[in-house]
Lab assay of single mutants.
Amino acid sequence: MDVFMKGLSKAKEGVVAAAEKTKQGVAEAAGKTKEGVLYVGSKTKEGVVHGVATVAEKTKEQVTNVGGAVVTGVTAVAQKTVEGAGSIAAATGFVKKDQLGKNEEGAPQEGILEDMPVDPDNEAYEMPSEEGYQDYEPEA
């Protein structure tokens, strides 16, 4: 019985440690998101679009440190934060509304985080759909 109880105690310690790591990862992701939003706020009209992409990228980098179902929630929060940063930029006159959601080359930025393969159960990952990809044929 002692062996059984000791095993359960060790398992509990492992769960607590994993929860603490997840909590730490979420806190880091939130900190990076805040950094990115402050970065966007300090940019001029020309830099705002690039700044919004930076927020998304920093958040995406930190999301990889967070495991399990938390990833889905962090990704949703990050996307809403990026959308909010863009709205703030438009409201303050840093950028025109028609410039939001495009990178410096004018290509749409939507789907940055949505296409990231995420499995809350950590069982399997699927690649994003290939609808947006084109076949590449090298020139002879």
Rank of each mutant, 00 (worst) to 15 (best):
residue 93 G to R: 08
residue 42 S to I: 10
residue 16 V to I: 05
residue 138 P to C: 04
residue 62 Q to S: 07
residue 125 Y to H: 13
residue 81 T to D: 02
residue 108 P to G: 00
residue 106 G to N: 03
residue 100 L to S: 11
residue 110 E to H: 01
residue 118 V to I: 03
residue 74 V to C: 06
residue 15 V to D: 00
residue 9 S to L: 11
residue 126 E to S: 13
residue 36 G to W: 09
residue 129 S to F: 04
residue 68 G to C: 01
residue 138 P to H: 08
residue 132 G to I: 08
residue 39 Y to N: 04
residue 49 V to Y: 05
residue 138 P to Y: 08
residue 65 N to S: 11
residue 12 K to E: 00
residue 69 A to Y: 08
residue 95 V to D: 09
residue 82 V to Y: 09
residue 107 A to N: 15
residue 121 D to P: 08
residue 39 Y to I: 03
residue 65 N to H: 14
residue 121 D to I: 05
residue 71 V to P: 02
residue 22 T to H: 01
residue 140 A to L: 11
residue 136 Y to M: 09
residue 47 G to E: 03
residue 78 A to T: 08
residue 135 D to C: 05
residue 13 E to W: 06
residue 103 N to M: 05
residue 140 A to V: 07
residue 111 G to Q: 13
residue 86 G to E: 12
residue 29 A to E: 00
residue 118 V to G: 12
residue 102 K to W: 12
residue 19 A to C: 01
residue 74 V to I: 01
residue 33 T to V: 15
residue 7 G to E: 14
residue 20 E to A: 06
residue 51 G to T: 13
residue 55 V to C: 08
residue 123 E to N: 03
residue 6 K to I: 03
residue 137 E to P: 03
residue 33 T to A: 15
residue 71 V to L: 15
residue 70 V to M: 13
residue 74 V to F: 03
residue 25 G to R: 13
residue 29 A to L: 14
residue 11 A to H: 00
residue 67 G to A: 11
residue 132 G to S: 05
residue 43 K to G: 01
residue 140 A to Q: 03
residue 46 E to Q: 15
residue 8 L to R: 00
residue 86 G to L: 07
residue 35 E to V: 11
residue 19 A to K: 01
residue 79 Q to A: 12
residue 39 Y to H: 08
residue 12 K to Q: 02
residue 88 I to F: 03
residue 29 A to G: 04
residue 19 A to M: 03
residue 48 V to L: 08
residue 21 K to D: 00
residue 102 K to A: 10
residue 88 I to P: 03
residue 46 E to S: 03
residue 41 G to H: 08
residue 137 E to Y: 06
residue 106 G to S: 06
residue 64 T to C: 08
residue 105 E to L: 06
residue 43 K to R: 11
residue 96 K to M: 06
residue 117 P to E: 04
residue 59 T to D: 00
residue 138 P to T: 00
residue 2 D to K: 07
residue 56 A to K: 06
residue 131 E to I: 04
residue 71 V to R: 06
residue 56 A to M: 13
residue 34 K to S: 08
residue 97 K to D: 10
residue 44 T to R: 01
residue 86 G to S: 06
residue 109 Q to N: 15
residue 58 K to Q: 05
residue 119 D to T: 06
residue 86 G to N: 12
residue 106 G to H: 06
residue 139 E to K: 03
residue 112 I to D: 06
residue 56 A to G: 01
residue 26 V to G: 00
residue 76 A to P: 03
residue 64 T to M: 14
residue 84 G to M: 07
residue 24 Q to H: 08
residue 2 D to T: 00
residue 139 E to G: 06
residue 132 G to T: 11
residue 39 Y to M: 08
residue 128 P to R: 05
residue 88 I to V: 07
residue 61 E to D: 07
residue 93 G to P: 07
residue 77 V to F: 14
residue 84 G to H: 10
residue 130 E to C: 06
residue 78 A to Y: 12
residue 72 T to V: 10
residue 18 A to G: 07
residue 134 Q to P: 07
residue 64 T to H: 10
residue 86 G to Y: 10
residue 38 L to N: 03
residue 136 Y to T: 10
residue 106 G to C: 06
residue 8 L to M: 03
residue 10 K to V: 08
residue 11 A to N: 00
residue 113 L to W: 07
residue 1 M to P: 15
residue 125 Y to S: 01
residue 37 V to W: 10
residue 27 A to Q: 12
residue 7 G to L: 02
residue 105 E to P: 07
residue 73 G to I: 12
residue 128 P to W: 13
residue 140 A to W: 15
residue 50 H to E: 11
residue 15 V to H: 00
residue 97 K to N: 13
residue 17 A to Y: 08
residue 100 L to P: 13
residue 118 V to W: 12
residue 57 E to T: 07
residue 43 K to W: 05
residue 79 Q to Y: 08
residue 54 T to I: 07
residue 31 G to R: 13
residue 117 P to L: 06
residue 67 G to K: 02
residue 13 E to A: 13
residue 11 A to F: 03
residue 135 D to Y: 04
residue 61 E to S: 05
residue 19 A to N: 00
residue 66 V to A: 06
residue 86 G to R: 09
residue 47 G to H: 14
residue 19 A to L: 11
residue 9 S to P: 01
residue 115 D to G: 06
residue 60 K to T: 10
residue 51 G to F: 15
residue 81 T to N: 02
residue 35 E to H: 05
residue 42 S to W: 08
residue 21 K to A: 09
residue 23 K to C: 08
residue 48 V to N: 00
residue 31 G to L: 11
residue 62 Q to H: 09
